[in-house]
Write a protein that binds this DNA or RNA. Structure first.
Lengths: 251, 251
DNA sequence: GCGCCCGCTCAGAGCGATCTCAGAGGTTCG
DNA sequence: CGAACCTCTGAGATCGCTCTGAGCGGGCGC
C-alpha cells in the first residue's frame, strides 16, 4: 500500500537506513538559516531524520539529544570554530561521520588532516546532489548505512553507474563524463521513469548560488545525449512543457 | 445543498485521505482573496479540509491551529518572504509539504533550493487541475496521503495514465500527448462515467486568465479522440447540450 | 421534413520551448 | 606557463503546441 513505511524516501525509492531499519539521523549545523533549511529539506527527502543548529553550542545540545549518525558541519560558526565542535562531537557520539562545509579558499591542509579519520568535506558553493551523495558515501563506508538495494551502483536498463569509482557504462562501454554531466546523470538515474522539471534539476544539480537560467539544463542534457544515447536507442527523453525523463529502452 | 461523507469528494470518487481516514488538511496562503477563494474551492472539491490566509503572520497562526498536511503558498506576500514563512512553517509542522505559487519571471531568482526537498511549485497563471495534481503528488510522495485506489496510476478500462512518468497507454500501446491534451485527459480519467460540461472543463484545465471560448475544448476533445480512440472502440463520448464523458468500453 | 444550432475537423498563424553551435572566461594539471 | 578541459552565455534555427477562423454535417425541435 502507499502508507509510507519508515524506510521509504519521499521520492519512493528504498531508503538508506540504519542496520535496525530505523531512519538515519543527521544533524545540520550552519549559521545561515536559509541554507540550513535547504540542506535539511534535501536530506529529509532521502527519508532521513534531520535536525538543525545555528551555532556550536546548540549543535552539541542537539547532538546529545538526537545522537546523529552523521553531521553536516559548517566550518565557520559564529561562536566556535568547526574543529572545536568536531572534538566535542566525538566525545558525545564517538562514531559519528562528519561532512564539512567550507569556503573554497579555506585552509585545505587542515581539512585534509581532519578528513583522514574517514570524514569528508565539500566546498561552498555546492550542489545538493553532491552533499547528499557525500553523506550517503560517508555512512556507507562507516558501515552504518544499510542499503536496501545492491550497493554503490545505480542501474537503469543497460546503463550502469558506479558512484564510488565515478564510472559510467552503457552496454558495457565506458562513457566519460565531466563532473556536471555526472551529477546530472546521477540525478536522472536516481529518478528513473520520473519526469523532472528543469527547475528541479537546476535546484539539485547546480549550486544554490547559481544565478543562471534553466537554459544550462538544456545544454547539459544535450551533452549527455551525445554521450549516453550516441547512436543507440535513446534513454533520455524530452517531455515538452514538463521536463526530462530517463527510461530504460522500451521492452 | 449537497450532503456528503467526510471521506468522499463532491464529485463522488473516493477521496485521498490521511492514513487514519480523516480528510487531508490544506492551508492556502495568497494575498489575492479571489484567487485564494478559487483555489480553496478546487481543493475542497477534492474532499479536503481547507483554510486560507492572506499574509505570512496569519498563515502561521492558521497553521498552528489547523496543522495542515500541505500548504499552497504564494511566494510574494505583503509581509514576509517565502523562505522565512517556509522555515517557520517547518518549525510548526515539520512534515508539511509546500506548493509554491510564483510569477513566471520570479521563477529564475529565488526558487533555487525551494524544490530541493519534497516541495514543488507552479507558475502563475496556472490551471486548477495542475495545482490539485501537484498537491496530490506532494502528499503521495510524502506518504501522507492514503489513496483509496491503486497508486500513482489512473486506470479507466484499458486506458492507463502514469502521472509521474507522464505516460499514457491504451491496451498497452503508448500514446503521446501534448501538455494540454494530457491535462484534459487526466481530468476526464479522474471523473470517469461523469459528464463534464465544457465550462467545467475550461475552468479546470485552462488557466484562470484564459480569455478564449469553449470552442477550444471541442478542439482538444477532437485531438484526444484521434489519439485515444484512434480506430478502437470509442471511450470519449459527446453528450449533446451537456458535455463529454469518458467511459470504459461496455462489455 | 426543414432549418437551426451544436459540435467536429481542417488548415494555418503566431509564439514559445528546445536544441545546437561557437566561443569567451576560468580552472586544473603537468 | 601552456595545453586541455570545463562551464556558461548568446544567438540562431527549428520544431511543436495552442488557438483562431471557417466550413461542414448531423441531430433535434418545431
Amino acid at each position: 500500500m502507499l502508507v509510507r513505511a519508515m524506510n521509504t524516501t519521499r521520492s519512493g525509492h528504498p531508503a538508506v537506513t540504519r542496520p535496525d531499519g530505523t531512519p538515519l539521523r543527521v544533524l545540520v549545523v550552519d549559521d545561515d538559516p536559509d541554507l540550513a533549511e535547504v540542506l535539511s529539506g534535501a536530506l529529509r527527502y532521502e527519508g532521513w531524520r534531520v535536525r538543525t543548529a545555528g551555532d556550536g553550542a546548540s549543535a552539541l545540545a542537539e547532538a546529545r539529544e538526537l545522537m546523529p549518525d552523521a553531521v553536516v558541519l559548517d566550518v565557520m560558526l559564529p561562536d566556535t570554530d568547526g574543529f572545536a565542535v568536531l572534538r566535542s562531537l566525538h566525545e558525545v557520539t564517538p562514531d559519528v561521520c562528519v561532512l564539512f562545509l567550507t569556503a573554497r579558499d579555506a585552509v585545505e591542509d587542515r581539512i585534509a588532516g581532519i578528513t583522514a579519520g574517514g570524514d569528508d568535506y565539500v566546498t561552498k558553493p555546492f550542489s545538493l546532489e553532491e552533499v547528499v551523495a557525500r553523506v550517503r558515501g560517508l555512512l556507507r563506508r562507516a558501515g552504518i548505512a544499510r542499503r536496501q538495494e545492491d550497493g554503490p551502483r545505480l542501474t537503469v536498463g543497460d546503463l550502469v553507474m558506479d558512484e564510488e569509482a565515478r564510472e559510467v557504462t552503457r552496454a558495457g562501454e565506458l562513457i566519460e563524463l565531466s563532473p556536471t554531466e555526472f551529477e546530472l546523470l546521477r540525478l536522472l538515474m536516481r529518478n528513473p521513469r520520473r519526469v523532472l522539471s528543469k527547475a528541479q534539476i537546476l535546484d539539485r544539480v547546480w549550486s544554490y548560488d547559481f544565478g543562471g537560467r534553466a537554459h544550462v539544463v538544456e545544454l547539459y542534457i544535450s551533452y549527455l545525449r551525445k554521450k549516453v544515447d550516441a547512436g543507440r536507442e535513446p534513454m533520455i527523453h524530452t517531455v515538452r512543457g514538463a521536463g526530462y525523463v530517463l527510461k530504460p529502452v522500451a521492452r
